[in-house]
């Protein structure tokens, strides 16, 4: 336990800037305190379930999968995930290609589908190493990619957001969409893990 935890700490430069800006916006009537609170609550409560729904739907509906790969934004709209800020590119894992997502410049991430990014995704070691030595990074996540499988790293540098469409694991034929969605975790959609059937038992 950190000794300083719970003790008063002076605000950092950026914390102070955030408080000043927020108070000004509220004073000027541009947003209300309640709107700020509700937005924070919404952001923090969002997980990866929307992304899992997209993946599970693609697994069960080949025509939807084709549309998702052709135009991710439009395909999400079909599922009622109409998010103006989201320009989505879905990249498909196959027996020959494994995809991995990173944002080397900051922490671009499909938040509307996956929620807030994990801390490691925003860390400098992940951001610098994922493009430089992706196989070592994946191995540290416990994922060994065979030499004959191409590793494709996507650096999310500008206006697009990326979602990995993992391969449907063996032993899940005939599962319905809800059950499939349970094995599609956040990490599978970033590309540092692959769905495993055993995860369904844990999730249940």
């Amino acid at each position: 336990m950190n000794e300083d935890q719970g003790k008063y700490q002076p605000l950092s430069y950026f914390q102070l800037m955030e408080v000043s800006l927020r108070e000004l916006l509220v004073e000027k009537g541009i947003v209300t305190d309640e709107q700020v609170r509700a937005t924070l609550e919404d952001m923090r409560s969002r997980g990866a379930e929307r992304g899992a729904k997209v993946v599970a739907h693609a697994w069960t509906d080949p025509a939807f999968k084709s549309r998702l790969l052709a135009d991710g934004t439009q395909a999400c709209r079909e599922l009622g995930l109409d998010v103006p800020a989201l320009r989505l590119i879905a990249v498909e894992n196959t027996p020959d290609v494994h995809n991995l997502i990173v944002c080397t410049l900051c922490s671009c991430y499909p938040r509307m589908l996956l929620g807030l990014p994990p801390d490691w995704y925003k860390s400098r070691p992940y951001r610098s190493r994922a493009v430089r030595e992706p196989r070592s990074v994946l191995a540290e996540f416990g994922l060994a990619i065979p030499e004959d499988v191409q590793v494709r790293v996507h650096d999310s540098t500008a206006d697009m957001r990326y979602l990995v469409l993992p391969m449907q694991p063996a032993g899940t034929a005939g599962w319905n969409e809800e059950r499939l969605a349970q094995i599609v975790t956040r990490d599978c959609m970033i590309g540092v893990a692959v769905p495993r059937v055993a995860d369904a038992a844990n999730a249940a």
Binding site: R132, E133, P134, R135, S136, V151, R152, T157, M160
Partner: peptide
Amino acid sequence: LQREVWPDYAGGADDALEVEIF
């Protein structure tokens, strides 16, 4: 191609990097 970007890249010859560029 990763091997062109990083001459000492330790991975498959087909490993690739995709970047958005204006």
